[in-house]
Amino acid sequence: MSMSTRTLLTLICEAALEPRLIKDLQRLGAPGWTLSDARGSGTRGVRSAGWDNDGNIRLEVVCGRERAEQIVHHLQERYYDDYAMICYLSDVEVLRPQKF
């Protein structure tokens, strides 16, 4: 079994941003993404789950490091000042690296 290293970009933010983020990911060349509802508590208080505008989403992208950093830079420049958002990168081992 041959494994390759890629970068997992994880973004947790306000559900209201979903349509804009999907367009951004397409434009920035993300090879794909996984989107789910999220709930939790942080510096901006408790956030409930659900797909309405009051909830949070968790968006994950597996891609090359350079593309992940490009996406993170865009998110920071465009959204960080005005929206509840956290983003982090992790190295992950994947099968079928050509997919990412």
Rank of each mutant, 00 (worst) to 15 (best):
79 Y>L: 08
87 C>M: 09
37 D>P: 06
42 G>Y: 07
78 R>D: 05
60 E>R: 09
67 R>H: 10
16 A>Q: 11
52 D>F: 01
70 Q>V: 13
21 L>K: 07
44 R>Y: 06
6 R>T: 03
93 E>M: 08
45 G>D: 05
24 D>A: 15
35 L>K: 02
49 A>F: 00
66 E>C: 03
9 L>N: 09
6 R>G: 02
91 D>C: 01
68 A>P: 08
8 L>H: 07
95 L>G: 11
20 R>H: 07
64 G>H: 09
48 S>Q: 12
16 A>S: 15
99 K>V: 04
39 R>E: 14
44 R>K: 12
79 Y>H: 09
57 I>S: 03
54 D>I: 02
26 Q>K: 15
9 L>I: 08
57 I>C: 11
65 R>T: 13
52 D>H: 09
4 S>G: 06
5 T>N: 10
99 K>M: 10
32 G>R: 03
36 S>P: 00
29 G>A: 12
50 G>V: 00
94 V>R: 10
10 T>V: 07
91 D>V: 02
77 E>P: 00
79 Y>S: 08
95 L>I: 12
93 E>Q: 14
86 I>N: 01
56 N>D: 03
17 L>Y: 06
99 K>E: 14
79 Y>W: 12
78 R>F: 01
74 H>N: 12
57 I>P: 09
12 I>A: 02
65 R>M: 04
76 Q>V: 14
20 R>G: 11
9 L>G: 05
77 E>I: 05
11 L>P: 01
6 R>F: 05
17 L>C: 08
69 E>G: 07
7 T>E: 08
61 V>S: 02
92 V>H: 11
21 L>R: 07
23 K>R: 14
